[in-house]
């Protein structure tokens, strides 16, 4: 019996010691920023959509060159995953590929904070086909709806439009947890997250790229940037809303003629976090460099005047 007690005691001591050592390290770390004095220090925490990730990463990378002591971190746990951390105030900025939801705003307000919405860039969802596909260069929204709606029974190209080959059609699309999936179903099918289920789904867009590139009868959709970097491997479908077919390009996405698959992507900033100088400086930097850095990572920026207006919003 004594032995057992001894062992338990020993075990607790070891564990307590481990924890103590752990905490000790943490404390010294926290003191550092204060010691550096006037220079801008502290941390800016960003998390959310993997679609917006490359933009925030580019900003963090450039910001670090000017303010090496500010620790900017970017995660990619998805728009909803990021919101779950943004609402209780665990992070300062949420990356989002869809507008914030009402209940999420309420959650933020409940803890005495507020949200600043900044549409940061456009993403044009691209519908793509195999490069040897000679027939489906243009599709109407109605045809896409017929193909993708949950009740769809379309199995062959000829069932979409008379005259198209009597060949099976293979579908590729993003996973159901992605913001891209939510947006596509909303504007094409008419209801968010409502889609036929018999398609090859992947959270990794490169899997979709490979699928479409290697299958003559494939049709898939994903963010414009993935088409941009794989142009030689596939064809993009021009979308016809009844006013003529429009092909996604930087120009058509920016001027809004590429409809309805062009969507804004956002960052959401906590008003309370914005009171901290390092967060304010970072958001200002973000907006001032948006026009320059956003095209570098494959997205389409807003006009410069939009960012100027947003700058006023955060001052």
């Amino acid at each position: 019996m004594n032995m057992k007690k001894g062992l338990t005691l020993g075990l607790s001591i070891v564990m307590a010691a481990t924890l103590l050592v752990g905490c000790g390290g943490g404390k010294t770390e926290e003191k550092k920023p204060a010691a550096t004095g006037k220079k801008l220090a502290g941390s800016v925490k960003i998390d959310g959509s993997s679609t917006v990730f490359p933009i925030s990463e580019a900003m963090a990378e450039e910001f670090r060159k000017i303010n090496p002591d500010v620790k900017v971190t970017v995660g990619e746990s998805g728009t909803t995953g990021g919101m779950k951390k943004f609402v209780p105030g665990e992070i300062d900025i949420a990356d989002a590929s869809r507008p914030i939801k009402k209940e999420e705003v309420e959650g933020v307000k409940k803890r005495g904070d507020d949200v600043i919405e900044i549409p940061i860039a456009y993403d044009g969802l691209s519908v793509v086909i195999h490069k040897d596909n000679t027939w489906a260069g243009t599709m109407t929204v109605a045809e896409l709806k017929k193909l993708w709606e949950p009740t769809s029974t379309v199995k062959k190209w000829s069932e979409i439009r008379a005259g198209w080959p009597d060949q099976p059609i293979k579908l590729y699309g993003p996973g159901t947890a992605s913001g891209t999936f939510e947006y596509f179903t909303e504007v094409i099918v008419g209801k968010s997250k409502s889609s036929r289920a018999d398609f090859t789904a992947s959270e990794d867009d490169n899997v979709l790229v490979k699928g479409v590139a290697g299958d003559k009868n494939a049709l898939g959709y994903f963010g414009y940037v993935y088409y941009l970097h794989n142009k030689e491997k596939m064809k993009v479908v021009s979308i016809d809303t009844g006013k003529g077919a429009v092909t996604p390009s930087e120009q058509t996405i920016k001027d809004g003629t590429y409809k309805p698959l062009s969507r804004p992507i956002f960052i959401y900033v906590s008003k309370k976090s914005l009171e901290r100088p390092e967060v304010k400086e970072f958001v200002t930097f973000y907006l001032k460099n948006a026009s320059k850095l956003i095209p570098q990572v494959g997205y389409v920026p807003y006009a410069e005047s939009h960012y100027q207006e947003m700058l006023k919003k955060v001052q």
Binding site: V21, C23, G25, G26, K32, K45, A60, V74, G75
Partner: peptide, 20 residues
């Protein structure tokens, strides 16, 4: 680690157990 929210872009070295 992704579930607990480990990050993707980190441009500093961990300085202690409480570091991101």
């Amino acid at each position: 680690l992704i579930t607990i929210g480990a990050l993707t872009y980190v441009a500093f070295l961990p300085t202690g157990p409480m570091s991101e």
